[in-house]
Write a protein that binds this DNA or RNA. Sequence first.
DNA 1: GGCAGCCATGTTTACGTAAACATGGCGCTC
DNA 2: GAGCGCCATGTTTACGTAAACATGGCTGCC
Lengths: 353, 353
Amino acid sequence: MIKIEPPRLRAASDVPGGRRKQRVSMADVARLAGVSSQTVSRVANGLPGVVETTREQVLAAMSQLGYRPNSAARSLRYGRFNTIGVILFGLSSTGNSRTVEAIATHAAAEGYAITLIPVGVPTQDNVMGAFTRMGELAVDGVILIIEVHLLDATAVALPPGVHVVVVDSDAGDRYPVVDTDQADGTRQAVRHLLDLGHRTVWHVAGPAESFAAERRAGAWRQVLEQAGRPVPPLERGDWSADSGYHAGLRLAADPACTAIFAANDQMALGVLRALHESGRRVPADVSVAGFDDIADAASYLPPLTTVHQDFAEVGRRCVEALLRQIHAEPAGPGTDLVPTRLVTRASTAPPPA
Amino acid sequence: MIKIEPPRLRAASDVPGGRRKQRVSMADVARLAGVSSQTVSRVANGLPGVVETTREQVLAAMSQLGYRPNSAARSLRYGRFNTIGVILFGLSSTGNSRTVEAIATHAAAEGYAITLIPVGVPTQDNVMGAFTRMGELAVDGVILIIEVHLLDATAVALPPGVHVVVVDSDAGDRYPVVDTDQADGTRQAVRHLLDLGHRTVWHVAGPAESFAAERRAGAWRQVLEQAGRPVPPLERGDWSADSGYHAGLRLAADPACTAIFAANDQMALGVLRALHESGRRVPADVSVAGFDDIADAASYLPPLTTVHQDFAEVGRRCVEALLRQIHAEPAGPGTDLVPTRLVTRASTAPPPA
DNA sequence: GGCAGCCATGTTTACGTAAACATGGCGCTC
DNA sequence: GAGCGCCATGTTTACGTAAACATGGCTGCC
């Protein structure tokens, strides 16, 4: 049973310091400064029409009382909250956490706080529930970091009228999307391996449910086909190093396999381990490339050639796109692609003679 | 210049679908259901005193209009928000992001949303600014994931009257603290190495500003001293694999060094690389242990012996401790330690004969 | 049968802010 | 010098919710 607070006492006639400090409102400041609360409001919001001496009195009263504006009241008044909601599947992946960090940083710089709702199991119901909660919280907009095609199972779309930006998804035809240029990054990596002289490139893909994984796999296939190379059977992992390890063990057993493109760095780490344990040297016998360029990749054995992804920029553009929607014209759907760049390290080399 | 919205039109007499949907309030629902808004409130909050037929009418009206409670108004009324603020230095470290994820998950389960404010540079000013912002947002409590001793430079403490829980800090004498049992985890790792027969253990510490790093280094030193072993000079990194690599290069040059305890897994990764490049085998020549047990550690070359840290549990306890404060008696200071456990893998072995 | 009491429901009010409107005094203009 | 207008400031109101209080009809008891 939750204890109900006793009725609030009017002023701070309470035992000071003993009980909870009474919240200071504009009216309290106004009383102390001898002005109306409206004048306090004007001072608080930097509006004109307050003479300098009055303003100083008000400011003095504010700091004396420790006044803080109450955003609940302000939000009720304005109908908005200066808050951006972020709905995401999980923070465990490096990419997500760095994107969220960038979102939070840029949002803060624009005066917005961010509210996070993680969705453990990304079902339609759970995502809609998160949206409902966001609606209750009166966020000004929502950034969705979830594979939106998970939502396609039913006819229900995202709530209309809510400003939304989607990350890492193919929903570009329905919502504004910000995403890393998965296809171009993949092309750079695969072409790099072909240019080194490899006949073809094997691929350890991410899970089929992931659009990023599918786009990387699709681009990999396309590059090979356009170059007239054979397309080896796909290996699939779940983004984890361990899944990369098992895929790597299978690939290591195939002597024809001299170049592997893993869909992320962690799976590449597992591939490196599998190759090592199978006695195949990297890059002398087999070349390995990854995707993401996480900080650790430069310290793998050997340091990993990988596609650098600019998570911070993705986050920044999300916030910008959302604020543009909030402040002005409703942005239409479309995809904003953040470029990638190949970072060449020691894990790739020409194939063995 | 921000465009000011034209005055709101009363009902949805607006072009439907064209303009922004008018927010549905209790009054709208009440009107449709033919009851008072107070009755709607009672239904919305599951309070007794509403007859079944009336309740059904209200529920029907709610779903017909798509009513959502407005948390701004509710917060204004209640004086609280059902929101927990999290102030943190960065999400980039594995530990932080997983802790935040656990916090968000458990908070959500308790009906709380979380609001995130990252503090890029953890100065006193910035942290106080974040607290001010949290105050404005009327969060019910704050979880601080920042080395609190950074705040000790000045006399200013955290704002009084705000419920707060601190993670990963030595502020246990002033605030409730939840933390991994750094000392015990370190003891397990160092003793494991000594038990294997190593004469002593070298240490690659984290940055001196970090209390976690200091506590791990302190425990390392203590175990060695209690065992009567020599205490080798400390190597310091900044948590990154790259810094571990450079420390590792220095240690690899010392033939006496047969066992290394790195303060986190990523620095251990760098150490592994340095040893490899220096031609020293792991674990045949040198044993390496880490701290954190991040997912990748099992795929390092060789798989890393490390101290498992339960970030999810830390997050859970933070939320619990904070909610306890919010709902009931103000919890005093004190430290809640989450146990750790050593995970033995292939990177540790007896010293060379 | 009359009245007390209870239950379902309605009415009033307060939460803190800020827009819209009101007021009053002073200076400037003709 | 009288009136107009502007500027600083005050007053009213609305935002959506829910506690507190009010009402009115019905039941049950003596």
